[in-house]
Design a protein around this nucleic acid. Structure first.
Lengths: 143, 143
DNA sequence: ACCGTCATTAGACAAAGTCCAGGCCCTCCT
DNA sequence: AGGAGGGCCTGGACTTTGTCTAATGACGGT
């Protein structure tokens, strides 16, 4: 099953199935939004997704793209990356992992979560529970 | 010298001296902006700073606050925190350290950098150099 | 066919931050 | 003192990202 997923090409049917698996009704618009994220497995901003979805001809409105992305995040299908002060990026990879972020080019690169360990963290503030840890290694092009 | 700094109260003269030490011409407006950040040693957003500076009576314009904050960051006097999708926070503490971020209340808490270690990081992307590492532990209030 | 519910839409709106053109102030030079 | 130049500051217009709203559309169940 897992082996089949890795070689399974991303079709709209597959996307619809993943939406259902996350408790999301697979409407045409949601499938298109999820498709552009899952097809090219990249970090995309909302306005880039909006442009990609409507590249051939207008298909999905701005409000729907934002609604879909928020829903996907709430349902755990995608992850939000807060690294750029101007815009949010969405990451279709929900495995625990971290990121390089080039502060000049804006480029985002994954860091596998397998090998990275964060040690020596103090106890959480009282009355709170952890949601996750983000490690962002800021880089810049060599002079 | 270091001992004296710790007990030194934050006056406008002290602030001016720190600006000069970072190569920043200490104008009246810049001193006011830096003062509110250094006085209360908190994480503040730009619009909060704008409001605090002009609390008694209008003193500094919006453009100047943003200009000053950008300059301070470039000169290494303060640090930018990208944790909230809506706004940037500024941190007067430039020692290496990390943060708890409550995703519900928006509260930011420091994690001392002394004890925290991040291990197992892969090599940097080719042609880049590291600028720093941010560790953000996202939390939420216990149910 | 009807109804209720949810999804989608265009466009208005809000908030954070940037840009610009003009004016101010300070210093330096003569 | 007068003038020139260079920063710096300013109000306001502008841009961009994202949200809200009110109306319409799609769809399943009875």
């Amino acid at each position: 099953m897992i082996e089949r997923m890795e070689i399974q090409p991303i079709t709209r049917e597959v996307v619809a199935e993943r939406l259902r698996a996350h408790g999301i009704a697979p409407t045409h618009q949601r499938i298109e939004v999820a498709y552009v994220l899952l097809e090219r497995c990249e970090h995309l901003s909302a306005d880039r997704i909006l442009a990609l979805v409507n590249a051939r001809h207008a298909e999905v409105s701005k409000a729907t793209v934002y609604n879909a992305l928020r829903l996907f995040r709430e349902k755990g299908l995608i992850r939000e990356l807060i690294v750029d002060p101007a815009k949010v990026f969405y990451d279709p990879n929900t495995e625990p992992h971290h990121h390089f972020y080039d502060v000049v080019t804006g480029e985002l690169t994954d860091i596998s979560g397998d090998s990275v360990r964060v040690e020596g963290l103090p106890p959480l503030p009282p009355g709170t529970v952890a949601e996750g840890i983000d490690v962002i290694v800021r880089t810049r092009p060599r002079s």
